[in-house]
């Protein structure tokens, strides 16, 4: 996923086009619900727009978006409104987001893991972040990230019954 610098600070549409899968994917991995991920996707880019923040480079911008996504996910899951309501989709099976059956199987296995393992694995494989970057995004020490990646891989491998050899 090679990235080219955005012209200037980047128009809003360009920023959304470039990072919508980044934000939405992390929100979906964190929350599991496409509707909630859609909500977080909107809130993140609204916050981005309203913050007027300038970034040193694309890595800085991406890191800010990832951190904001997690913060807003946390706010959503901790909101008193959410605690007192039952989403319509609860109990229903969310449509799987991928075209290939194998991709959906990998995603299902990933999303069945505990969050402690799911998010580092998602950021490592899907977002291609380094352990240092994951540590920054998740506010963990790099050693902890490596530990969770290692154990998450083990669990994923078990869930996929030996088919997961990607390193």
């Amino acid at each position: 996923m090679e990235q080219q610098p955005l012209p200037g600070s980047g128009s809003m549409a360009e920023v959304i086009d470039r990072y919508q899968t980044t934000v939405y994917g992390l929100a979906l991995a964190r929350l599991g619900s496409p509707a909630d991920a859609d909500d977080v996707f909107q809130e993140v880019f609204l916050a981005y727009f309203q913050s007027g923040k300038t970034f040193r480079d694309e890595e800085h911008r991406k890191a800010w978006l990832l951190r904001t996504t997690l913060n807003l996910c946390r706010r959503l899951t901790h909101s008193s409104w959410r605690r007192r309501t039952v989403p319509l989709e609860e109990g229903q099976v969310s449509p799987l987001p991928f075209r290939e059956p194998e991709e959906n199987r990998v995603w299902q296995a990933l999303t069945s893991l505990e969050e402690n393992y799911r998010l580092p694995l998602y950021l490592f494989y899907f977002q291609e972040l380094s352990t240092q970057e994951i540590a920054h995004v998740l506010s963990l020490r790099p050693g902890t990230v490596r530990m969770r990646l290692s154990r998450g891989r083990e669990q994923l491998r078990a869930l996929l019954k030996g088919e997961f050899d990607h390193e």
Binding site: T22, Q42, V106, H166
Partner: peptide, 15 residues
């Protein structure tokens, strides 16, 4: 699993 393309999967995660 070796041929799973995570980048392609990531591209499909659109709102």
């Amino acid at each position: 699993m070796n041929n799973v393309d995570f980048t392609a999967m990531q591209r499909q995660l659109t709102p």
